[in-house]
Amino acid sequence: MQDTVAVALITSLSTLAAAALTGLVGALSTRRQLAHQLAVAGQEATERRSTRRDELRREAYVGFLGACDQAYRSLDRRWVEAGGDEPPSGYDETYAAMRAVDEAYNLVLLQGPAQVAAAGRSVLTSVTTEYADQRRLGGEPGAGVGPLRDRHRERWLAAIEERTNRRVSFVAAVQAVLDRDG
Score class of each variant (00 low, 15 high):
182 G>R: 07
163 R>G: 04
141 P>R: 15
160 I>G: 02
66 G>M: 02
171 V>W: 02
154 E>T: 09
173 A>W: 12
176 A>I: 02
173 A>N: 10
75 L>K: 05
115 Q>A: 06
128 T>R: 04
128 T>V: 03
37 Q>F: 15
76 D>S: 12
96 A>C: 11
177 V>I: 09
171 V>G: 02
179 D>F: 12
6 A>G: 00
156 W>H: 13
107 L>V: 12
143 A>S: 14
84 G>Y: 04
176 A>S: 07
182 G>A: 14
53 R>M: 02
139 G>Q: 13
54 D>A: 15
86 E>R: 14
25 V>F: 11
171 V>H: 03
153 R>E: 12
152 H>P: 00
152 H>K: 09
68 C>K: 13
179 D>H: 14
155 R>H: 13
32 R>F: 05
134 Q>G: 03
150 D>L: 12
48 R>Y: 01
175 Q>S: 12
85 D>G: 09
61 Y>G: 06
159 A>K: 01
28 L>Y: 05
83 G>D: 08
99 R>F: 09
10 I>A: 10
24 L>T: 14
82 A>N: 08
102 D>V: 14
162 E>F: 02
89 S>T: 12
38 L>I: 07
8 A>Q: 08
111 Q>G: 04
174 V>F: 04
129 T>W: 00
69 D>Y: 12
65 L>V: 11
98 M>K: 03
100 A>C: 08
42 G>A: 12
20 A>C: 04
66 G>D: 05
134 Q>H: 06
71 A>M: 10
87 P>W: 13
103 E>M: 15
165 N>D: 14
109 L>M: 08
54 D>Y: 05
71 A>D: 14
170 F>G: 01
122 S>T: 15
47 E>R: 10
104 A>R: 12
53 R>G: 03
83 G>M: 08
76 D>H: 09
138 G>E: 10
52 R>K: 15
46 T>S: 07
126 S>W: 02
151 R>G: 13
24 L>V: 07
40 V>Y: 04
178 L>N: 04
33 Q>A: 05
159 A>C: 01
71 A>I: 09
118 A>V: 07
16 L>S: 09
70 Q>M: 00
144 G>M: 08
3 D>E: 04
178 L>G: 04
98 M>Q: 01
164 T>A: 09
169 S>E: 07
147 P>W: 10
164 T>P: 01
125 T>F: 14
47 E>M: 08
25 V>M: 13
72 Y>R: 08
133 D>W: 10
141 P>M: 11
70 Q>F: 00
103 E>H: 10
31 R>Y: 06
25 V>T: 13
49 R>T: 10
42 G>D: 12
131 Y>V: 08
15 T>H: 01
158 A>I: 00
15 T>M: 13
90 G>Q: 08
55 E>I: 05
77 R>G: 07
180 R>N: 06
159 A>D: 00
43 Q>V: 00
98 M>V: 01
70 Q>K: 00
141 P>D: 11
153 R>L: 15
52 R>L: 15
59 E>I: 15
101 V>S: 04
112 G>S: 15
142 G>P: 11
175 Q>I: 07
4 T>N: 10
121 R>E: 15
79 W>T: 11
